[in-house]
Amino acid sequence: MDERGNRWSELTGGEAGERYAARFAALAESGTDVHGEAHFCAGLLAPGSRVLDAGCGTGRVAIRLAELGHSCTGVDADASMLAQARRRAPEMAWCEADLVEVADLGLEPGFDMAVAAGNVVPLLAPGTEPAVVSALASLLRPGGLLVAGFGLDADHLPLAEATVTLAHYDTWCVGAGLEPLSRHATWDGDAYTGGGYAVSVHRRP
Rank of each mutant, 00 (worst) to 15 (best):
T73L: 08
T73S: 12
A66I: 01
A83K: 10
L159F: 09
L45I: 02
S200T: 15
L140F: 08
D155I: 05
G106P: 04
A89T: 03
A22R: 00
P109Q: 12
H156V: 01
V132Y: 01
E96N: 02
V61S: 05
D53V: 07
D98Q: 09
M113G: 11
A125I: 06
P122I: 14
Y20S: 01
M92H: 10
G143R: 05
A79Y: 01
L11G: 08
L123M: 11
E129N: 07
G17S: 08
A26G: 14
A79H: 05
D104C: 13
A38M: 01
H202F: 13
F24P: 00
A93Y: 06
D98F: 14
D190M: 06
F150V: 03
E96H: 01
T12C: 01
D53S: 12
W94T: 10
L27G: 00
E67I: 05
R60S: 02
R203Q: 14
R7P: 01
G31D: 08
A137H: 06
L99W: 11
H168P: 06
L178H: 08
P109G: 12
S138H: 07
E161H: 15
M1L: 13
D112I: 07
S30M: 07
F24R: 06
V201C: 01
G196P: 10
E179G: 14
D155T: 15
R23F: 11
A198L: 01
G74N: 00
E18F: 05
L157T: 08
L107Y: 12
R4V: 09
L82I: 05
V121P: 00
E18V: 12
A103G: 04
T12A: 04
P142F: 03
G175E: 11
A21I: 00
H39F: 02
L65R: 12
A83L: 05
E18W: 03
A22V: 00
Y20D: 10
R141L: 12
A79N: 04
W94E: 09
T32E: 07
A46F: 05
P130H: 04
A148E: 10
A148Q: 13
P130S: 03
R88D: 12
R203M: 11
G151T: 13
G175W: 07
A176C: 13
A148V: 07
W94Y: 11
R50T: 13
G177E: 00
F111L: 04
T193F: 01
G189H: 08
A38K: 03
D78M: 11
P158V: 12
G57D: 02
V174S: 15
T186A: 06
D2H: 06
D170T: 15
D153E: 15
G195M: 10
E10F: 08
E67N: 07
C95W: 15
Q84S: 06
V61P: 04
D2F: 10
S80N: 02
G175V: 02
A103R: 00
G36K: 09
G5H: 02
T165M: 13
A25P: 00
L68V: 12
A97D: 14
V201A: 03
L166Q: 14
A117Y: 03
V61D: 13
L178A: 11
C72T: 13
H39W: 02
Y192G: 08
V133Q: 09
A46N: 10
A185E: 04
R183C: 11
A135V: 14
P126Q: 03
L166M: 15
T186Q: 09
L52I: 05
L45R: 10
A21Q: 09
T73R: 09
G189E: 14
D76C: 06
H39Y: 06
G43Y: 00
L65Q: 13
V75G: 02
G194Y: 08
